[in-house]
């Protein structure tokens, strides 16, 4: 990936609406680069509910969210989009008609238009609201495991009740000095085999269970975690000495740097003119869940239409001298990237 790419349109967010925007732009002869914070495309459909059936996509009486994403990818493929996965859009700058979007890697993409299709914002770990936690992230507090060796001989607290929490408790129990698994209730949501293994390791004293408990506070010294306070659901609190906390509470979305893109906001949504989907910033558009206008409905099907609406004005911005010819896909033939006539 070059540090300074150029394209027609930068799409921020590879959820269903961002993917549909590739087609909407491609249909009008425009190339797209797509920036996605997660390591995979699909947004909420992939990250939150890939197996849930969706019933309100016209033409599909029922379709699993993951399947819808696979089909949107296939539909976008002829337009040869470039994906930047695991990258957050962190900064928007403007020089004349050229907009530049900087990514978390430091690379930038220059384009004539930006379509923000970021849903509820970029996904990241669902961070426990504990004072001082940010300063310990990556050193003592972790939301994923990169290198199990770092935990050898350490006292580790793992928080959460799903597969990640249980599986890492099991996997690290061989290496760690101690593992304490903290969860707000007795029941864990995990594969039956993992639950059996957890029971066995708990009986053998390799994993200590603290249920029903929740994280209450962190104590650190010189940037290193020393102890974690946990609270019983009925109130009593106690401290656990630990060098590492692994917190597995799923993922959460946040507008993050988009707040500073200069576009008009209402709480967590971007205000647009519904006739064009343009924001308060010229040539910056917002579609899908993140966009707001009167009577807005946060539906995939509405988002699809919003992307098509945006693409029309994007075209006028990019090709100010070319007339806009409305064309049905049936007239245009099989999708391929070609200059609009």
């Amino acid at each position: 990936m070059s540090r300074h790419a150029q394209t027609d349109v930068v799409i921020i967010g590879a959820g269903p609406i961002g993917l549909s925007a590739i087609f909407a732009c491609g249909h009008l002869g425009m190339r797209c680069h797509v920036i996605e914070a997660l390591s995979d495309v699909g947004g909420q459909c992939t990250a939150l509910y890939p197996e849930k059936p969706i019933y309100d996509i016209p033409g599909f009486p029922a379709i699993a969210a993951g399947e819808l994403i696979a089909r949107l990818m296939a539909q976008a493929a002829p337009f040869a989009p470039t994906f930047h996965l695991g990258q957050q859009a962190v900064k928007l700058t403007r020089a004349g008609d050229i907009l530049s979007v900087e990514m978390s890697s430091g690379s930038t993409i220059a384009a004539r238009a930006v379509i923000i299709a970021a849903g509820g914002g970029a996904f990241g770990p669902n961070r426990p609201p504990l004072a001082g936690i940010e300063r310990l992230e990556g050193t003592s507090v972790h939301y994923w495991v990169k290198d199990t060796a770092a935990f050898t001989g350490k006292r580790i607290v793992i928080a959460g009740g799903g597969d990640s929490a249980v599986d890492w408790a099991i996997a690290l129990s061989e290496h760690a000095q101690s593992i304490t698994l903290v969860h707000r209730r007795e029941r864990f949501r995990c594969a039956p085999a993992s639950l059996q293994k957890l029971d066995e390791l708990t009986r053998r004293g390799l994993i200590a269970l603290k249920v029903p408990y929740q994280l209450a506070a962190l104590q650190a010294e010189a940037g290193k975690l020393e102890a974690i306070e946990i609270g019983h659901i009925d109130g009593q609190r106690e401290w656990l000495e630990a060098e590492h906390l692994l917190a597995f509470y799923g993922i959460a979305s946040d507008l993050g740097p988009l707040r500073d893109f200069g576009v008009g906001l209402s709480e967590e949504q971007i205000l647009v003119d519904p006739a064009t989907m343009e924001t308060s910033e010229r040539s910056v558009f917002a579609v899908g869940d993140i966009s707001l206008y009167p009577s807005k409905q946060k539906l995939i099907v509405t988002g699809f239409a919003e992307a098509v609406t945006a693409a029309r004005t994007v075209y006028e911005r990019i090709f100010p001298d070319r007339p806009f010819h409305f064309q049905h896909s049936t007239d245009r033939g099989p999708p391929q990237l070609q200059p609009a006539q």
Binding site: P128, P129, G161, H183, R184, R185, R189, Q214, G250
Partner: peptide, 13 residues
């Protein structure tokens, strides 16, 4: 709903 509440904080009875 209980399963989703596992992703909440300050969860109680």
């Amino acid at each position: 709903e209980e399963d989703m509440l596992d992703q909440g904080f300050d969860v109680n009875r």
